[in-house]
Design a protein around this nucleic acid. Structure first.
Lengths: 168, 168
DNA sequence: GCAATATACTAGGACATCCAAGGGTTTGGA
DNA sequence: TCCAAACCCTTGGATGTCCTAGTATATTGC
């Protein structure tokens, strides 16, 4: 956005919390705020890389999910569950991907309520190329130490499990 | 959203990455995806707590920032920089907070380009009460182990510094 | 078998974020 | 002094997310 700040605004907030006598929750507040900000930074990097492909992160995630499905097709409700987003968000993403010719809707063979989303061959190509660039430009240069990556996976995995994302 | 999944979708994605030969970036990919999902869960909790106050997280952050400013007022560009969001997002938040009577715009005394945002007394009251509930309902029950909170603050703090958020 | 309930997707609305562009104000160099 | 460049805020547009409600199809229970 702009130039770096002279001080860490989240550390400042943590100090403010402690000064007000909320020391018991100051650290979790700072951690949660840091997660918010980190997500914002990472999302911006990802979207910047995907822009040349005409993709957003939401649409890329759907393409990637489909590309890993054996049949190359998934019911919309399944995609919604796996991506952990609201069904209307999937409808929105599919609308745009379909208009771009990267996926196609088709009726479910036995359940009239269900719509299957299927990768087109162009969709598969775009997914492959976008993934390659994301791997090299974002995931390969995350800025996290290797040991910290393991810590994040452990800590956030535990959090997500406790939050009810999955049972394992 | 829905019921817990039988398996962790992010761990599955990491395995898929490894199977395709992208083992070198599979772990950072999983960590980054986990940050995205964690942010989503935390944001939902926060918004749920703030809803009774007629606040969103974006508006709450602005109120909280103002409540910690000595004078109780800040220029909009300063708020934009400290909250690390685009100036138009601040304009949007101030518009709504002003309509709700929680903040007021006033001209800067010496710089005609600048607009100051000031807490109203009602705004200060709402900020105080919203903070109390957030502290007890979200930050006080984050679900993170105390040691993990420290790890998160360290890891994400380092990341944000490297990303150019601040120099310290 | 049929009505009541549950499930799947979509339409419309509220919010937030960013970008691009425009209008007003200040600053700084020729 | 004066005009160009820099800065500040706002408007308008695109996208994503969620919620609520509505339509269509399946499933269940009597």
């Amino acid at each position: 956005m702009g130039a770096p700040l002279p001080r860490d605004p989240i550390a400042d907030a943590q100090h403010n919390w402690e000064e007000r006598g909320w020391s018991d929750v100051a650290a979790p507040m700072a951690a949660i705020t840091a997660i918010m900000r980190t997500q914002q930074i990472l999302l911006a990097r990802i979207e910047s890389v995907l822009k040349p492909f005409g993709l957003t992160f939401a649409r890329y995630e759907l393409l990637a999910l489909l590309s890993f499905a054996r049949s190359g097709a998934l019911p919309m409700n399944k995609a919604s569950a796996l991506l952990q987003v609201h069904p209307t968000s999937v409808t929105n993403a599919v609308d745009r991907l379909e208009r771009a010719g990267l996926v196609a809707r088709s009726p479910h063979p036995t359940d009239g309520r269900t719509t299957l989303i299927e990768l087109t061959s162009e969709g598969r190509t775009v997914a492959k190329r976008a993934t390659a660039v994301l791997n090299s430009e974002v995931f390969g240069q995350s800025g996290f130490e290797s040991a910290d990556v393991d810590q994040l996976i452990r800590i956030l995995g535990s959090f997500r499990r406790n939050a009810g994302d999955f049972t394992d």
